[in-house]
């Protein structure tokens, strides 16, 4: 009887957005009198940071710092339609809608600035700090604060924009299944290293090395949050979680956090995250949805590592000590 080590690999891809498309999201952007920008949505932040990312996307597009953007979301009396936060769609769908709305608002802003500076709007650029400059002659400039005041009180313009993003729905062909499930895919490869106690069936995930390709890390610290948490959930799915431990038998289902098992802060694998960026053709600044796929590759990687360690295949999730012990017993019985 011994502690045995093994390692396993898994490689996956994952679609961004609702399968087969047809999932719209809209956004509205408008400027306040002093050049702050309000983004109005009905998208939901589940904790992944949707509000912050939409603020950064709007800020980048308009040409202002992120703290000049306010997010007003998920009030159906004011927010235009969003299909919802699921299917790794939030950043991609809502982000594209925000870009379109912000571009339209930016155009009005530049037109007003052009009138104030008596130049063509096409000759203007933003410095990202809240100013609009004449290209090649940056000493000639006006603050966005002043442009917004002018638009509101002098020129009677609404610095605002409408955005809409919809990938037309694909209908699978009945006999062949020909279809377009998604426009872009995130990718991952995970190597997990485990120890298995062949006397108790207990698995310890020692290290998990995850490489994720996510299009573009719009906010690297927030991407890291998702990927680290997702990697934890993948390991949790692999080894711990189920509401019906003896499925299809319905008995013994957990009803609280004492019975429904997940790794606690003392059960963490040493986790490494490496991010690659291959910008997607239709993503906001190339972004894809990393939120779901980051929890998938750990499951087969751990399963393969368990086999590498003790030579038994557990093809039923979760990979519990009981299942490992039964498999080891069957293996010993030959």
């Amino acid at each position: 009887m011994a502690i045995r080590r093994g390692r396993g690999v898994a490689a996956i891809n994952y679609p961004t957005g609702m399968n087969l498309g047809g999932d719209p999201t809209q956004a509205l952007v408008h400027s306040t009198p002093t050049g702050n920008f309000m983004v109005t949505l009905s998208s939901v932040d589940l904790g992944q940071g949707m509000k912050q990312i939409m603020a950064q996307i709007c800020a980048e597009t308009i040409g202002v710092p992120t703290d000049r953007v306010i997010i007003d979301t998920a009030d159906t009396d004011t927010g235009p339609h969003c299909m919802g936060t699921f299917a790794s769609r939030g950043t991609h769908r809502a982000g594209n809608a925000v870009i379109q709305a912000a571009k339209e608002a930016r155009q009005v802003m530049l037109e007003v600035a052009a009138e104030e500076l008596e130049v063509n709007a096409s000759d203007l650029e933003t410095d990202g700090q809240g100013n609009i400059l004449v290209k090649g002659a940056p000493q000639k400039s006006i603050s966005i604060f002043d442009v917004a005041l002018s638009a509101h009180f002098k020129r009677g313009r609404s610095i605002s924009g409408r955005g809409m993003f919809l990938i037309p729905r694909s209908y699978p062909e009945k006999e062949t299944g020909a279809m377009k499930p998604s426009t872009c895919y995130a990718h991952a490869c995970t190597v997990a290293e485990v120890e298995v106690d062949d006397e108790t069936g207990e698995v310890t995930v020692l290290t998990v090395k995850n490489v994720f390709e996510i299009g573009r890390a719009l906010n690297p610290k927030m991407v890291e949050q998702q990927l680290v948490g997702g990697s934890w959930m993948g390991i949790s799915h692999a080894l711990y979680e189920t509401t019906e431990p003896y499925y299809p038998n319905r008995d013994y289902g957990g009803t609280d956090f004492n019975q429904y098992l997940m790794p606690g802060p003392g059960d963490l694998a040493k986790t490494e995250i490496i991010v690659l960026e291959r910008p997607s053709a239709d993503g906001p600044f190339g972004a894809k949805g990393p939120g779901e796929m980051c929890a998938n590759p750990q499951i087969p990687a751990v399963a393969n590592a368990v086999f590498d360690a003790v030579g038994v295949r557990i093809d039923t999730l979760p990979i519990t000590p009981e299942r490992i012990m039964r498999a080891l017993k069957a293996q010993a019985a030959g």
Partner: peptide, 22 residues
């Protein structure tokens, strides 16, 4: 680190994987 883990072990987090909290 062990004392931090012990202190947090009665609190469930479903998002972060605990490491950033530790």
């Amino acid at each position: 680190r062990e004392e931090v883990v012990e202190a947090l072990s009665g609190n469930i987090c479903r998002c972060t994987g605990y490491e950033p909290i530790i």
